[in-house]
Amino acid sequence: MTAAIVATGVSRTYDLDGVSVPALRGVSLTIEPGDYLAIVGTSGSGKSTLMHLLGGLDRPTGGTLLIGGRDVSGLTPGEMAKLRNETIGFVFQSFHLLARTTARDNVALPLVYRGIGRRERRARATEMLGRVGLSHRVDHRPNQMSGGEQQRVAIARALVTGPSVLLADEPTGNLDSATGQSVLALLESLNAEGVAVVLVTHDREVAARAEHQIVMRDGLIVSEADA
């Protein structure tokens, strides 16, 4: 099986008012299907930059990055969008659900950009909500749901396109610890079904649950450890 994401000597430098600020200084990393990886680091360590690169939201300024076997350096913003849609599922700390939209339509959103018809979108979204245990919340809006439920909706949205990698940026950051545990358990059960899960967190306890850990500092990987 080919690796889902391969980063080789990847760097990312921001140009802030003429001053170049290196956020990532040569990172190599491979994510295989079924991996369960945690990227740990303090704020400013470069872990968010790395996550944006791995998710195809941004492009490296140095090194090569293959997502789903494709080199992202030559892709247009439109092609990048397609790649994200097909390969990556995002879970954010603040859920990022559309406020006026029902759980089902939030989950169906990635399928809109895949050009799938409304009926099929709804069917697949409903099924996915069932998988995250929210069959009873299909027609609820985000403000009618708890934080844990909202994050489950976000996870269902990330999964609905059948991605090979699920990128979760502080997925438990806005949740109490019991709810956080159940969200992690959900991610782990999905991982067990074969989806690669990448957790980006500053919480060592959360990171400890992953099979592999990468610790970042000052734009570099400073240690790698297997659980």
Partner: peptide, 10 residues
């Protein structure tokens, strides 16, 4: 941003 993340093209 969210729409783009889930696959909306420019």
């Amino acid at each position: 941003g969210l729409r783009k993340a889930v696959g909306a093209r420019p």
